[in-house]
Design a protein around this nucleic acid. Sequence first.
DNA 1: AGGAAGTATAAGGGATGCCTTATGATCTGC
DNA 2: GCAGATCATAAGGCATCCCTTATACTTCCT
Lengths: 216, 216
Amino acid sequence: MLQDRVEEYLGAIYRLRTGEGEPLPLSQLAEYFGFSPVSIHEMIRKLDDGGWVDFHPYRGVTLTERGEASARALLRRHRLWERFLTDSLNIPWDEAHLIAGDLEHAAPELVTDRLAEFMGEPDACPHGGPIPPALQSSEERCLRSLGAGAEARVTRISPETPALLRRIAKQDLIPGRLLRILAQTETETRVHLQDMPEPALSIPETDAQAIWVELM
Amino acid sequence: MLQDRVEEYLGAIYRLRTGEGEPLPLSQLAEYFGFSPVSIHEMIRKLDDGGWVDFHPYRGVTLTERGEASARALLRRHRLWERFLTDSLNIPWDEAHLIAGDLEHAAPELVTDRLAEFMGEPDACPHGGPIPPALQSSEERCLRSLGAGAEARVTRISPETPALLRRIAKQDLIPGRLLRILAQTETETRVHLQDMPEPALSIPETDAQAIWVELM
DNA sequence: AGGAAGTATAAGGGATGCCTTATGATCTGC
DNA sequence: GCAGATCATAAGGCATCCCTTATACTTCCT
Ligand SMILES: [Mn+2]
Ligand SMILES: [Mn+2]
Ligand SMILES: [Mn+2]
Ligand SMILES: [Mn+2]
């Protein structure tokens, strides 16, 4: 879920659109990517099905709230990489833009957030584009704090203790996973992973304390 | 050419093999990746066709010189990223390993070489693995220095002047491109790009001076 | 030497993301 | 209001890289 190509399309829509929530004509995307209109259309339909965009026939696409958030996060990663490449590694800014276009997909938020910290929280890319703020964790809730029935998506694991990370990876509770809370007991949280055959997963209380999610 | 998956396989062969040029049994790769033996076999056949490995039926695979060089370069990028992630960004080493496993494919040699410089040319990754040296440019030749008929692959553009980079990108003379020298005149180098319909490309002498290649 | 285990290979399938060609639907300008 | 341009959509293809099933071949051990 949320492959590179999906991100790339969301990012392109974000950059190419004009103000005012006006739908972006697919022809613009075709020109930007150099793909055939049919391919663009096909992909946009997938994005619509996935809830990333709204497709308005004969008018264009708009980003949903979810798509908008992804695009903004992508742009943040892109611009932070650009800053780092130009400032710390002395890479020319046009090349930095191209390289950042790949790095933005390769590393998780954690890396670019640390990069931002490392560089003193810059607020613009080398080309002057503003760097969107890190996703405010106001909407982030601890897995442990949710009641039975709640549906949420894992956003991050914190603190990042290696042993904990390994335990969590083993249960495949990686960021992005959709889950539903089955029950909270004194010692554990029982969870169901979406699209998984297993009926439930038991997470010890101390681990659940370190899993952060976003309500759906 | 040289997609992520190809690199990943070459890297795995490099790491998993024991000493002495002993072929690595495909079963080891199947276990490492968790893929079916048939899938591994199919991929290995492609790598063999591409000249990256030699496949010895019922014995295993060995890396060709070309495959070995790619794997070594990949490992260098991997370990430099690991160093950077752990040392500069304080990311736990097990997570750094995973992230480096993606970053190693996303950024060109240029970035990791600069990273190495930035970190004072470390000689081991956080886990103690030695960092292979940068590809010695002894085999690198300037495009301008080649005679007509020579076949070569673009390795890098240096110096990295933005305007030059843009001009070169426009002619698609990016690193990795295979070309054949048609002629060298006082003012330009005429070149044919492999798999390109156009009969020839003319590169001004000053630009050709900045294009570095590896003879085929 | 024979048989079990391991390995190779053929055949067909699925997802993704690109392509072209072809047919309708809608919009827009005159 | 109609025509030509633009856009939507269906259908079929291709490359990549993964899958399973099934058959054939080799190796190795008893
Ligand atoms: Mn990108
Ligand atoms: Mn920028
Ligand atoms: Mn990798
Ligand atoms: Mn390491």
